[in-house]
Simulated assay, not measured.
Amino acid sequence: MKRMSIFRPGLFKGKVAIVTGGGSGIGKAITEELVTLGCRVVIASRNEDKLKKASQEMDPKGQSVFAKVCNIRKEDQVKTLVSQTVNELGRIDYLVNNGGGQFPSPVADMSLKGWNAVVETNLTGTFLMCREVYEQWMCENGGVIVNIIADMFRGFPMMAHTGAARSAVDNLTKSLAVEWAEKGVRVNAIAPGGSIYSSTAAKNYGDVNIFERTIPGLPTKRLGTTQEVASATSFLLSPGASFISGATLRVDGGGSLYSPLIWQIPEHENLPAYKWTYSPTPEEDTAEEESSSPKAKM
């Protein structure tokens, strides 16, 4: 079966993107959407086995998804990733800085090593990727960068390290949008809420119910999907967002704005989740496909 995007087919035909952390969770959903729209995508992370598995799953023929091992905290590895992409695929139109990581802990219990690891990955890694893509390609050819941050607008208790780093990336996004505008580079950010369900994240946090506990604080009264972040990313990369730069788009179902002390929202099902639809391949039976495939709910 072929995954279909809400955006027009071929929107990113002939384009090349780098998606860090593109082998799982939100990054994988973004990669799938871009590939569906005709883009060739380099996915990068430290875990070679995960990258190869994801690449094979998304692109069995090896024509659209290319796995590259890279620790974004290491300057030499970032330089190599970018140069290999340019040499092998000929261009870099888009950069999606999705790679990152954190762990739950109160500040009083954080070690300096743990703090540095999170800040270096989420902030320094993003800086290195932006700078190298700009220096090696976009300063002469233009392009679009989207930084995936987090809902840290009211502080981030239990994850102050990533809250501080993501807030810094939000500010970095604004600075780069101004500094690089004359070179034809747009830079924006997306802040997914903590309510975007990802089995990978749930496993990493060691708590399968960590997402479910956020539902009472959401105006949507449901969790978000990784596909909803992917479609928002595709919009910011697209020509439809050509006059948007330096902005941060919150994909959180209004959770960062909701205060039950002021306004009570009852349980409801009036804001259904967006799901990618499917269309049959020539070998599949159309009638059966139409009756069994998940449909988009808008």
Rank of each mutant, 00 (worst) to 15 (best):
E179T: 07
E228A: 05
S64A: 10
T173Q: 06
G27A: 04
V208K: 13
N122C: 14
P60R: 02
P260N: 06
G25K: 03
P272C: 12
N97V: 01
T248E: 01
I30N: 04
T226D: 01
E228I: 04
W180I: 04
G27N: 05
A247S: 14
I190S: 06
I26G: 11
G99P: 02
N98S: 08
G14F: 05
F12E: 00
M129N: 13
Q77N: 06
Q264C: 07
E228D: 04
G101W: 02
A296P: 07
P216D: 08
V187Q: 14
A54Y: 00
L81F: 02
P157R: 05
V144R: 14
V118Y: 05
Q84T: 12
S175N: 15
F12V: 00
S45V: 12
D59T: 02
V82S: 06
V96Y: 10
R186K: 13
A189P: 03
L261M: 09
L128W: 08
F235V: 06
A168C: 05
K183F: 13
E48F: 07
G254C: 04
P192N: 09
F12C: 00
V144I: 13
V133T: 10
W263S: 12
P282G: 05
P216N: 05
V19N: 09
I196Q: 01
R154T: 09
K52E: 05
A17F: 03
V185P: 06
Y258L: 07
K53V: 14
N116K: 07
P9Y: 04
E120Q: 11
G125A: 01
V82P: 09
M152A: 08
E32N: 10
P280N: 15
N270Q: 08
L271I: 10
L51H: 09
A273L: 13
S24F: 13
K221P: 12
Q63T: 14
L37G: 09
K13Q: 14
R166N: 02
P219N: 12
N122L: 09
D59S: 07
G143W: 10
S279I: 12
A202N: 07
K275F: 14
F103A: 10
V185H: 08
L271V: 07
H268G: 06
